[in-house]
Write a protein that binds this DNA or RNA. Structure first.
Length: 604
DNA sequence: GTGGGCTGTCATTAG
DNA sequence: GCCTAATGACAGCCC
């Protein structure tokens, strides 16, 4: 019995060896075996399983750490809310002012300002979670967004969050940042939402975390509308992007819901998950430019080195079926979102002009401060930045380059008008009838240049001299893709002008030939008329000659004094001018011989 | 739906 | 060898 088992075991090992030989043969022939080759080897399979087990344990450990950090951060936020009670709202400016020490002791009491507007303000501090619960319970009362937002306590809490999240902004408060009550409520929404922006967040990064303040992650942030760009200098160092629960939530939401092109406050349930049911405020921020890029342009854009620019990722995303949706996590989305308030970064442009469009159909106003995408890490030299402020303002509206210095973050109403040839009118002005409708204000190359963040205008690229063009390329550290695009733009632009000139010349040639044809036709008519006149004159001379002939013939008499019969004789003139009377039955040769005889006889 | 005009783009060639 | 102009051919858009 034992021998049989041993034999079976030996046979089994032998069979395994044979199978491994076959697998090796198949593997060498690069045949698809369905699974990795190692899976057929029991020893290697065990090792793989062990490795996976270790990785799983590491992952679980990491998740636990993240959860702990989440809880810790929530606790800190809660403490921050509690500190809110130490502030009062300035009735005139709406700014947060610290409570006097005497009042701080009874901070649980509502301020005089807030009691007028906030009925929910009680003797206890109103935490965000409390507000959530109130709003949840108040669903039957049809609490509107506006009335809710007029809850000054909540607003103040939001402001506090903003100030805590972005302490750097407080330093700019004297210039750009002013969280005053004069700011629109929508702006505050955007400010809060901007804190949740996760620039450059990778899709695979920390998506498993839970946000305790939000009951469910199904409350989706279906857009990144509230994610204005942030400059590297304005990056928020206090926010750990890799551990921020908000960010993970955003990331998760974006990952789960990529297919959204509309932006709505209902999505703001990131913070207030139950408001969306009663406040379906929708912000239509569909971008014409974006649509054009996605639907018409990006599909055929041949851009390499997608890792060079965030736009590259956008284009790759756009090339897929979920082009629009995938932008949710794309830095390009942030770029587009910076134009919130207007339907498009470019739809308010005059021709090729740019300019901040403050406030839009949604009634949103642009914050006094601007964020810049700190995920955009371009390696531009300083001259690049300088150029952005000086010469090459063809950047675009709202598409501020990430290397702007803080001083440039003020509102700069750029003149983005592309240089035109002297006397040249913008194309759209030349033929407005053709451009009305769906035709966009930007050419494809202009869109491409903006998408690739080329620091030159298309006109500069096309119309510059070779030396200037090469100098431009050398002056700015452009990526290979940008260089290729710039060269293509120049080539196409040159060829476009050449084609226009060629057609113009062709038309001129056609017109010239047409004129020549008409002139020749006129000459032909003139010659025909002249010929007719000549023929007429010839006929007249012929008649005159005939008349003279008859007169001369009638005057001739023979030897007997009788006139010659015209039927028998005719007058002929020789080359020397002599006239002879010749009988009609005689030939010309006879006449010549007779004339010669007469001459001889006369000489003799 | 179809044809013509206009325009942009590409490929090619010549200077 | 590179750049540019010129030009034929083609495609897309609009009327």
């Amino acid at each position: 019995m034992v021998l049989v088992k041993l034999e079976n075991c030996i046979n089994l090992n032998h069979k395994i060896d044979v199978d491994m030989d076959l697998i090796d043969i198949l593997w060498r022939q690069d045949l698809d075996m369905g699974v990795a080759r190692e899976m057929f080897d029991p020893n290697q399979r065990l090792e793989l399983e062990k490795e996976r087990e270790v990785e799983l344990q590491k992952q679980q450990q990491k998740e636990r750490e993240l959860d702990e950090e989440t809880v810790k951060q929530e606790k800190e936020e809660k403490d921050a809310w509690e500190d809110l009670t130490n502030y009062i709202i300035d009735g005139e400016t709406g700014e947060l002012l610290p409570l006097p020490p005497a009042e701080q002791t009874e901070s649980s009491g509502p301020s005089t300002t807030e009691t007028q507007t906030n009925e929910n303000t009680t003797e206890t501090p109103l935490f965000l979670e409390d507000a959530m619960s109130l709003l949840q319970n108040d669903g039957t009362n049809n609490l509107s967004m506006n009335s809710w937002m007029e809850n000054s306590t909540i607003q103040d809490e939001l402001e506090k969050v903003i100030l805590e999240k972005q302490p750097n902004l407080s330093a700019l408060g004297d210039t750009n940042v002013s969280y005053s009550r004069q700011n629109s409520l929508e702006m505050r929404w955007r400010d809060v939402a901007s804190l949740l922006e996760l620039p450059g967040l990778a899709a695979e990064e920390n998506v498993t975390q839970n946000y305790s303040a939000t009951p469910t992650t199904s409350g989706l942030i279906q857009n990144t509308t509230f994610a204005p760009q942030m400059s590297p200098t304005q990056a928020v160092p206090s926010i750990d992007l890799t551990t921020s629960t908000n960010h993970s939530f955003v990331n998760e939401s974006l990952t789960q819901n990529p297919a959204n092109t509309t932006f709505g406050l209902e999505n703001s349930d990131l913070l207030f998950p139950n408001i969306s049911a009663t406040v379906p405020i929708t912000m239509n921020t569909s971008s014409d430019f974006l649509d054009d890029l996605l639907e018409d342009e990006l599909s055929d854009m041949e851009i390499e080195n997608t890792a060079d620019l965030p736009t590259m990722q956008m284009m790759d995303d756009a090339s897929s079926d979920s082009a629009v949706s995938s932008m949710g996590s794309s830095p390009y989305q942030e770029w587009t979102d910076s134009s919130i308030g207007s339907t498009s970064p470019f739809d308010t442009l005059e021709g090729a002009t740019g300019g901040m469009h403050q406030g839009g159909a949604t009634g949103f106003t642009k914050p006094k401060f601007e964020y810049y995408d700190n995920s955009c890490t371009y390696s531009m030299d300083p001259g690049y930045q300088d150029s952005l402020h000086t010469n090459y303002s063809g950047s675009d509206n709202g598409t501020s380059y990430p290397q702007f210095t803080p001083a440039s973050k003020k509102h700069i109403h750029h003149n983005h008008t592309y240089p035109l040839q002297p006397g040249q009118q913008p194309k759209e002005q030349k033929k407005p009838d053709r451009d009305k409708g769906t035709r966009t204000m930007f050419s494809r190359d202009e869109k491409r240049a903006k998408a690739m963040r080329i620091p030159f205008s298309v006109a500069d690229i096309v119309n510059s001299a070779v030396e200037d063009f090469n100098e431009m390329l050398q002056k700015y550290a452009l990526t290979e893709a940008q260089l290729q695009l710039v060269r293509d733009i120049r080539r196409r632009g040159k060829n476009k002008v050449a084609a226009q000139n060629c057609r113009k010349r062709k038309m001129e040639i056609i017109f010239t030939l047409d004129d020549e044809v008409k002139a020749m036709q006129q000459e032909r008519d003139r010659l025909q008329k002249e010929r007719q006149e000549m023929e007429k004159e010839h006929l007249e001379f012929k008649n005159k000659f005939s008349h003279l002939y008859m007169e001369v013939f009638r005057s001739l008499r023979d030897e007997n004094g009788r006139p010659y019969n015209p039927q028998e004789y005719s007058l002929q003139q020789t080359a020397d001018g002599n006239v002879f009377l010749i009988p009609r039955n005689s030939t010309s040769s006879d006449h010549t011989e007779k004339a010669q005889k007469k001459r001889k006889s006369k000489k003799q």
